[in-house]
Amino acid sequence: MQLPACLRSGLAIAAAALSLPACGSDNKTLYTDADYERRAVVDVKTFIQDNLDQFAAATVALQAAAPEPDEDGWSATSDKEAVDAMKAEWKKARQSYERVEGAIAVVFPDLDTSTDARYDAFIEAKADDDLFDGEGVTGVHAVERILWADEIPQPVLDFESPLLNYSPAASPATEAEAAAFKDELCERLRADAEKMQTDFEGLALDAPSAYRGVISSILEQVEKTSKAATGEEESRYAQYTLADMRANVAAGVETYAAFQPWLLTKGAEGADVDKAVVAGFDRLSSAYDAIEGDALPPLPEGWSDEAPTEEQLATPFGVLFSLVERESDDAMPGTLAHDMTRSADLLGIDELP
């Protein structure tokens, strides 16, 4: 994931600033902090809306790709073409949502839960014995769990099967289950995506939601790697967690680019912070791009987050974990999370409630 030129070129930043509303006299153009903030929030809102539009479209296509219900339901073997089509649309939906997750979790917390909560979070309070309806366990991971039911990794099974209220993943085995999957579970995801899409259009986004939300996504990168050790990682059934992380960073890059011209008005300190943030994004992006595929690297045998050995840390997973753990630490100077927080503080963007 190559960083966009706007993060590297002072000329591009200067050009972007020219689109801001002007004020002043004697042919001098003056821009206030409010002008820069307004322009940044507009750009981020456009980016989020575009991705919500893509998310909604992918959920529609996923539902449409579901096989017509028949007496023996469907499976990845008996309806391979249709299942492969659903998986492709699921990945499109996942990418679009992960690019806006930071802001959506802030502005639509209930929809974020119904759309993106993990299986274990749903069943913690109540069992859900019907995998295919639109109640209880819902969202992208509920659909993912069914689409990849025949290839769930053993560590994931080891984590989930002892959970209270656990039900094994399965493909629809009857006409009724196949119909429920398409008309209830997929429909619930489609409806939630559409509600986000339409409600966000009229929303007055603010700078903390736009900027601090992305910082929250950066802070959560380490959780996505650390939970791999116990089978709890996010897109665990499709083995798509690294793709999620790439999308989170891509969103951070886009959001930061919108605020970058404003930060560069803050003198030498702003320039220093900008240089540090760009370098941090480059470190994460380069590390993610160096790994082939969409899954996290295999865990070293005997891996422990608390006491990894030097040999384990030298493996591809260990190298990635160490980098992500460091860059997600906002208390450590020189990390991406720390420098993003510095930039928000310098701009006067308030903490999220």
Rank of each mutant, 00 (worst) to 15 (best):
H141L: 12
A58T: 04
S322Q: 12
F108C: 00
K87Y: 09
T265M: 06
D70M: 13
D33I: 12
M245L: 15
D110Q: 11
S217D: 14
A179Q: 02
A238V: 13
D330S: 08
D289M: 14
I349Y: 02
D158H: 01
E201R: 12
V44C: 01
E124V: 00
A56C: 11
R99I: 01
V222W: 07
A14E: 12
A279Y: 04
E71I: 15
S286N: 15
R94Q: 01
F122M: 03
A179I: 09
S235Y: 09
L320Q: 13
V278H: 12
F317G: 06
D130T: 14
L242H: 00
D133T: 05
R145W: 08
K45N: 05
G267F: 04
R188N: 10
A169W: 07
C23F: 08
A76R: 03
D305K: 06
M340D: 02
T230S: 13
V140M: 13
L284M: 06
A103P: 01
K28P: 00
A57T: 01
V319R: 15
A127N: 03
E325Q: 13
L323I: 03
S217Q: 15
A40R: 00
R8D: 03
D158Y: 08
T241K: 10
E233A: 08
S226F: 04
L131P: 06
A251M: 09
T113W: 07
E254R: 12
A307Y: 08
E144P: 00
P208Y: 08
E325S: 09
A61R: 03
E306G: 01
A331K: 15
S328W: 14
E101A: 11
A125Y: 10
L11K: 13
L189E: 09
G293V: 14
L147T: 06
G280M: 06
L347K: 07
F259H: 07
V106E: 02
Q239M: 13
A149V: 05
D112A: 15
Q312R: 00
K227G: 06
P297W: 15
E234N: 14
D130P: 11
R342H: 04
G136W: 12
E68C: 15
E124G: 00
A76N: 08
L111D: 04
A279C: 01
G139T: 09
P353W: 04
E306M: 08
D272K: 07
V83H: 03
A34K: 04
L7S: 02
D43F: 03
L320E: 05
M332V: 15
S78K: 07
K195W: 13
D26R: 10
I291S: 05
S25G: 14
L62S: 00
N165R: 03
K227S: 11
G231A: 06
F159K: 08
G318P: 09
Q54I: 00
S304Y: 07
A176Q: 11
D350T: 05
T174K: 05
P168I: 00
